[in-house]
């Protein structure tokens, strides 16, 4: 934890030194804190998972931006003691305004680092039954793996000037290292193209993102080398001028299969070793004139353990506060 706090502080110092170097009033800062509480039901191993995140973002006009964050995960296990992970997030964005297109191109690079990640691995052993034709005996064992996690996420995006059309192409390379040679490293390559557009006089926004994920290590993701999923997000803005009013409402649906995914919008790493098969969530945010924002989301995620084929459900509540300066 100390290592990550140090790195987070270094990130913050880098942001502050950049602000100092450009000693003018052109920096726009924001800071956010959020909590994500997950309750698992029908899972053999998982009980709860709590995530706390703190992020600082600094934008220099509409030219470039720097971000730093710290995510703390605490996973309640049924068979083990709680597992705690700390993820360091660092990001940078640069905006380009080319003559050839009527919009802004943005290049961004985000990283997620975790030196001591802990996950639970499930192993399914099948032995032949007694005599001929007897039912086989299936033994499911679980073990705790200590590994590391390094994620790099470059994204190129386009947003037109009227903010009615958006497209991006994100590539994520995740590496989950392991000290256990039998388990080995896991490399995950994720391609996530996105398209979004507004309608209803810009009161609504529909975004579609396709996830294509390739996994390198069969021992870490039994029988799964490739997954794909589609995510739909519908956002509706309310024309509400009242102070601290309900600003927008959002519906999110994910269908398909997703394993070790990274959600760049939510800055969330899905480092559970189980297959996410669907997500349905609803949420919204409240804003006031003093640049305070509060958001709340609730949803259901369905998972499948690729080893035991066991299905389980995660009910989550995600809430946060953001302050702009």
């Amino acid at each position: 934890m100390k290592y990550f706090i140090n790195r987070f502080l270094i990130g913050l110092m880098f942001i502050c030194s950049s602000i100092y170097a450009e000693a003018d009033n052109n920096w726009y800062m924001s800071a956010s804190a959020n909590i994500n509480f997950n309750a698992f039901s029908k899972s053999q191993n998982l009980d709860t998972q709590t995530e706390l995140g703190v992020f600082v973002d600094a934008d220099y006009l509409e030219n470039y931006a720097l971000s730093a964050g710290l995510i703390y995960q605490n996973q309640g296990q049924k068979s083990f003691d709680n597992i705690s992970n700390n993820i360091l997030f660092l990001g940078a964005r640069y905006h380009i305004y080319p003559e050839s297109v009527p919009g802004r191109l943005s290049l961004s690079l985000e990283t997620y680092t975790e030196s001591e990640n802990s996950t639970v691995k499930t192993t399914r052993t099948q032995t032949p039954g007694p005599g001929s034709g007897g039912p086989p005996t299936v033994t499911i064992t679980t073990e705790l793996i200590n590994d590391s996690m390094d994620i790099i996420n470059p994204v190129i995006s386009y947003l037109n000037y009227t903010k009615t059309f958006y497209a991006d192409l994100g590539y994520t390379q995740s590496e989950y290292g392991s000290t256990d040679p039998e388990i080995g490293k896991l490399k995950v390559k994720q391609w996530a193209p996105t398209i979004g557009f507004s309608f209803n006089d810009q009161y609504d926004w529909l975004q579609f993102r396709y996830y294509n994920i390739e996994l390198s290590n069969d021992a870490r993701s039994p029988g799964v080398t490739k997954t794909s999923a589609s995510e739909f997000k519908l956002t509706h803005w309310l024309n509400n001028n009242e102070n601290f009013s309900f600003n927008n409402i959002q519906f999110i649906m994910l269908i398909g299969e997703r394993l070790f995914a990274v959600d760049a919008d939510a800055r969330k790493v899905y480092n559970l070793a189980d297959m996410q098969t669907s997500t349905y969530s609803i949420g919204g945010n409240w804003k006031n004139a003093n640049k305070n924002e509060f958001y709340l989301y609730a949803g259901v995620e369905n998972y499948e353990d690729p080893e035991s084929n066991e299905n389980y459900i995660n009910v989550f509540l995600y809430s946060g506060y953001k302050k702009f300066w």
Partner: peptide, 11 residues
């Protein structure tokens, strides 16, 4: 402003 660079335009 046409490029929605409101901060730069304000500056």
């Amino acid at each position: 402003m046409a490029q929605a660079r409101w901060r730069e335009a304000a500056s």
